[in-house]
Design a protein around this nucleic acid. Structure first.
Length: 257
DNA sequence: ATGGTGGCATGGCCA
């Protein structure tokens, strides 16, 4: 079973890229972030033509998440973090083929010390407490998405810039990520790779992709029970080379057995 | 760098 995460930065614009990539990569489950469209405009018919069922929680202009699956139904769908009042559509979860999948579009946070940064940390606290309950209810758990946090220095092109005081790498953000790991969740990419310099996001500005000035912020976390079944993980850079691309590349994990 | 690029309620906001 191949499970992927991709921030498409507007499904209005990127549906052709998603269709192309689904055909090439053949994932079984996909978490999508930043769909930037209302539920009424979600292209579920086009995706069904490719064999994918979809569930989604969107809004106009900002945010928006979806889960796609082929070969399995998407059951027990949960939208948003239970008990956490939030107008921003950043969370959708479902059970697919015996695996509980939580898809997150983590708050960006703008800059350390801003209101948006405080919201990011509050939001991550709420996610932590909910994921702890989900882990107890569903031992076969995957938490994936655009985390907007680079786990460590290997995951940034310039650790001197992306340091303890910088957004996406600050001490408090990384501590929040470590708290998720402490629930018995493992960064699937790091189960199979220890090298530095493999990225999933490159800023549109300053020719970030051409110069490979990236960060690895799109993650797939697998529970203890799924850890031994994780046979491969990677990031597919190819869609980032296409015309008018998302600024993110798809990250994927393969479960065997 | 109150910058740079891209998306969208096309006018500031968000990333």
């Amino acid at each position: 079973m191949k499970i992927a995460s991709w921030n498409v930065n507007s499904l209005n614009v990127r549906l052709p890229h998603l269709e192309q990539w689904l055909g090439e990569a053949q994932p079984d489950i996909v978490g999508i972030q930043e769909t930037k469209l209302d539920d009424a405009r979600f292209p579920d018919t086009a995706l069904a033509a490719l064999g994918y069922r979809s569930v989604f929680s969107g809004q106009k202009t900002y945010n928006g998440v979806a889960l796609l699956a082929r070969g399995h139904a998407l059951d027990d769908v949960q939208v948003g973090i239970p008990g956490f009042d939030d107008e921003q559509k950043r969370v959708i979860a479902a059970t697919v083929g015996g695996v509980r999948v939580i898809n997150l579009y983590v708050v960006n946070g703008q800059d350390v010390g801003t209101d948006k940064y405080a919201y990011k940390l509050r939001w991550l606290d709420a996610v932590h407490d909910w994921v702890a309950r989900e882990r107890d209810a569903h031992p076969r758990l995957v938490v994936l998405g655009d985390f907007n946090i680079a786990p460590d220095a290997r995951d940034v092109h310039d650790p001197a810039v992306w340091n303890d005081d910088h957004i996406l790498t600050s001490t408090a953000e990384r501590a929040a990520l470590q708290r998720l790991f402490a629930l018995g969740l493992h960064d699937a990419f790091r189960l199979h790779h220890d090298e530095a310099g493999v990225f999933s996001w490159w800023d549109y500005r300053q020719a970030g992709f051409r110069r490979d000035l990236g960060l690895r912020i799109d993650l797939t976390l697998v529970s203890d029970a799924l850890r031994a079944e994780t046979v491969a993980a990677g990031i597919d850079r190819e869609p980032r080379t296409w015309e008018r691309p998302s600024d993110h590349a798809p990250a994927w994990v393969a479960l065997g057995g």
